[in-house]
Design a protein around this nucleic acid. Structure first.
Lengths: 268, 268
DNA sequence: TTGCTCCTCACGTCACGTGAGGTGGC
DNA sequence: TTGCTCCTCACGTCACGTGAGGTGGC
């Protein structure tokens, strides 16, 4: 029989781990001295402890392992779950590595001052009014925005988030967020932009270089092993607009160099 | 200008994250109202926040990022460190996945009652007295152990850990742990077993099946993508021995079915 | 005035590591 | 008796999430 310390050395864990597992009811000493509280273990218990450590080694939580050891769980199901989780983690790490490679590989540029900081993040769903640019031929984007913002302003349901565009292939629609749905007209529609995950990039300055930025974002996502859904959203976070539209004030700037735009490349 | 909540939504993080980053000095609002304590942010700050989030996305700690942003660190060095760490994590995950596959793949057997629970763990260094079995031709292992244990007992320096064997190819030596080194004799040597990492497996019962178990452990390690160093240690955790040797009592059992043995396959 | 947001604590997460302060066993 | 180990708290780790209890702004 062994005390915690020597049994711990035998098993290759710390004494603290054995004490915790005892407290958790996960793995108990064969005998505990009533008066001193000393724990005593036998080598015959090693296979049982090994089972627990082997499961822990797969990344399972102690709670899961305890359920299993207590007979309350299906071992195959646990291992299956662990497998899925590990595969997910692996994909995440691969993505991060690819992203790092791109960053480091951008030779000559200081990796910290390069403007293309791509972040993959979940996008919340959003209710918006849209105007398909195909329905506004011959008019520039600004005129279309003026029309849409004016309409939404009149409905009194402008949400306090930034406007943008959604594109899918050659289809381009502009959108303005709403607090509640509004009725559609012949030109203006009401849609719900689905929630999703996107590789996102912030672009600064005038719009001439937006197309290039979109290309770089696509290239980044491809290199990072992400699958694009084909949808790209553009959010105008700081831009110029006619004041009479009563576009929420925070977004407005005078100088095109201060424009801030976010590109969102939807991925699976 | 935006309050925490709306700026957080814009950036795709929680308000709590912005407050923490403010407290850490990592990313601060452009303006804080003195009387209310309200934080205000501008979209022009988004690129800076994006840089931080992009670095966080590589798995860097907030402390590392703060040092960098404060100008105290080399970005290339940080990214290089992150890359190494991510690659290490990836290898670990691959190992765990391979281990899981072996476990799940052992069709027909309940993955929980299979006796081969392999755990990869670090091994501490150990000072031991050894007897090379090549020097004891014609004698069986038990006789050699008796000789070695008797010698060590007489030296008064028996460590309270289990005895075992070390093998490297066809070289086999038995060993007994010491509290302090002892002088070598013509047959008995004093060595230091190096610390290392090992795939370990507990074996239960008589020794006839130990060879098979060693094979299974090797197969496991190969499948898990581990590189064996060629050294294999065997620890006798519960075994039979003549009482007169005064081998530490806890290890002794009468019945061969109660023998407990650990196999340690050293890996890089 | 009613919601909504903001504020600052403070605790919970997870599986331990690392003391602090005190006791038991050879 | 001296070390060594054991005991039980209790706090720290990391980057937040989630209240609690109270206040500000339209």
């Amino acid at each position: 029989m062994f005390t915690v310390g020597s049994f711990a050395r035998l098993a290759g864990v710390s004494a603290k781990v054995l004490r915790s597992y005892d407290a958790l009811g996960l793995f108990r000493p064969i005998w505990v001295d009533r008066s001193s509280g000393y724990r005593y273990y036998s080598p015959a218990q090693l296979p049982a402890l090994r089972r627990i450590l082997a499961l822990r080694d797969t990344g399972a939580s102690l709670a899961e392992i305890r359920d299993l050891v207590a007979g309350g769980g299906d071992p195959r199901a646990l291992l299956g779950r662990r497998r899925e989780k590990l595969e997910l983690e692996r994909r995440e790490i691969d993505r991060r590595l690819a992203a790092l490679d791109i960053r480091i590989g951008a030779a000559g540029t200081d990796p910290l001052t390069g403007d293309d900081d791509v972040v993959v993040r979940p996008l919340p769903a959003e209710v918006v009014a849209t105007l398909d640019l195909a329905l506004a031929p011959g008019r520039d984007g600004e005129a279309a925005f003026n029309e849409l913002e004016a309409h939404v302003r009149d409905s009194g349901r402008r949400g306090s988030r930034p406007p943008g565009t959604v594109r899918r292939g050659s289809d381009v629609a502009i959108f303005v967020p709403l607090v509640r749905p509004i009725p559609a007209t012949d030109r203006i529609d009401c849609r719900r932009l689905a929630a999703g995950r996107a590789a996102t990039m912030i672009h600064r300055g005038p719009y001439e270089t937006l197309g290039d930025a979109r290309q770089r974002l696509s290239a980044w996502a491809r290199a990072a092993g992400l699958t694009a859904t084909g949808e790209v959203r553009t959010l105008y976070l700081q831009f110029g607009a006619d004041a009479y539209l009563r576009v929420p004030r925070p977004w407005l700037v005078e100088d095109a160099r201060d424009f801030v735009t976010e590109l969102q490349l939807l991925v699976d």
